[in-house]
Computed example of a mutant assay.
Amino acid sequence: MLTTIPQPDDYKNVGIECLIQAYKGIYTVDNSEMRPGVDRGDIWKYHEIVLRTSIVLIHQGIELLLKSEVARKSPLLLIDQKRGEWKTLPNSGDESFTDLYTIAGNDLLRTFYACIQAGSISENFVAHFEDIRVKRNKIVHSIGGEEISPEDVLKLILWTFTYLLGQDSFWESVLDKFYNHPGHDVGDMELEFEEIQQYIHIAYLEGILGRGELNNHFKIDLKSRRYHCPDCSARDGVLVRGDGTVEEYPSGKWAFLSPNAPDSTGLECLVCREYFEIERKDCVPTEGEPCKGNVIYLDEPGDTDEDTGEVYEEDSYICLSCMRDQSTETKQVPTE
């Protein structure tokens, strides 16, 4: 009989890991290797092997994700050996599935499409896979290939996730990889302010690829109005940069109305993945320039005597457009 037959998630988990490692290689160079006065193009010429390795990892990740989907029908469809060679008859002994050859390339692609519902993924995926296969073969078989930029490789990674696993899948995989770090269990100080790392990741992607390209890979419309998250944008803390400057964190706005409508009373944060109820009323900041925001959050509930109804402390609200206090006790309407 055949033993150690794999499960779909065995392939899927390793496939996602290949893609995440391809991304991390590029992200690490762009965020750790750049030096003042050195051209980014020169840095990437020096690290060209990182881009080539990422292409190989993307190709491997795709094949594993395709195998995962085929395995949902039956892992036996992946075996690339004649049935007459299978040790499955009585008294033929056992053979481990891991010792068998499995299908790859065009055979795997055709088998994959035979196992999924017609039209369930974009027709563009076939051309996407072929493009990566050609690039990978040039790298593996000739140790060369066409010039490719880190932006190009990042797009290949994101589109692989989106084609095969759907919108949001790339970002969810990045977040899960971080939040599941075992260092969180022991209070690793370097991981204490974990959300800042995710703000850096998402800001990096938008800065490198542009909002329009990044928008293809999220269900939330990244082109819509953004707000501070009342949770991870409101925590105390600072980010100390390499040049010694200090910045309060997180500084980006990555919370969006859910649904995106003028009367929506829900807000969803892309970073911490929390949902918040909000009120729609005009912001009247206590100081500084006027704010046109109208997304207000109850930051701290007040204190009221349950018996007499006397208010000891009023509710505390903040505007998620400017993060300024909306307290009625200290309200000073800005003058023109």
Rank of each mutant, 00 (worst) to 15 (best):
Q81A: 15
V38I: 15
P285K: 02
D303A: 12
Q167Y: 03
R40A: 08
E247I: 09
G145D: 09
P6M: 07
Q332A: 14
I202W: 03
E33S: 11
L205D: 01
Q60S: 15
D303K: 14
M323F: 13
L77V: 14
V311F: 09
A118W: 05
Y163M: 03
G41Q: 11
E95G: 04
K155F: 02
E279H: 13
P262I: 07
L209H: 05
D185Y: 14
S54F: 01
E336C: 05
V238K: 12
D131V: 02
L78V: 09
Y23R: 00
L154Q: 02
S68D: 06
D243I: 04
Q326D: 07
K73M: 12
T28W: 08
G166V: 03
W86F: 15
S68M: 08
E336V: 07
Y227W: 14
F125N: 01
L209N: 03
L165Y: 06
G242L: 10
Q326G: 03
R35D: 03
L191C: 03
H47S: 01
C283A: 08
I296N: 01
K223Y: 07
R133E: 15
K292R: 15
M34P: 00
D307R: 10
Y113K: 03
G242M: 10
G15P: 00
M34L: 15
D39M: 04
L191N: 04
W86S: 11
Y297N: 09
S258I: 04
D152W: 02
T28R: 04
E289H: 10
L77Y: 15
F129L: 05
D299K: 11
G84R: 13
G41W: 02
E17V: 00
Y163H: 10
D107K: 15
H141Q: 09
T162L: 01
G93I: 05
A203W: 04
A255P: 08
Q60P: 00
S327I: 07
V240P: 03
D303P: 00
D303R: 14
N124P: 03
D152H: 08
P150T: 02
M189I: 14
T335E: 12
L65S: 02
S327Q: 09
Y23D: 02
S169H: 03
R273F: 12
I196P: 01
Y179K: 10
H141A: 06
S258G: 06
L205M: 05
Y297D: 09
G183A: 07
Q21M: 10
C283Q: 06
H128G: 04
V246W: 07
L320M: 10
T245P: 01
K82L: 14
I5C: 12
T3M: 11
K138W: 08
N137K: 10
E192Q: 13
Y199W: 12
R324Q: 13
K87D: 07
S251P: 12
T98V: 12
T162R: 05
L320D: 04
D221F: 06
L78Q: 05
V238F: 15
Q326I: 06
Q198H: 13
E248W: 15
E172P: 03
W44N: 00
Y46R: 04
Y317V: 07
L108W: 02
H128C: 04
G93D: 09
R211L: 14
Y204P: 00
D152G: 04
Y23I: 00
D80V: 11
L154D: 00
E289K: 12
E95C: 11
N137E: 15
E206R: 13
H128W: 06
N260I: 06
K45R: 14
I62E: 07
Y199M: 06
D303I: 12
V333H: 11
E248F: 15
E147H: 10
V311I: 15
K135T: 06
I208C: 01
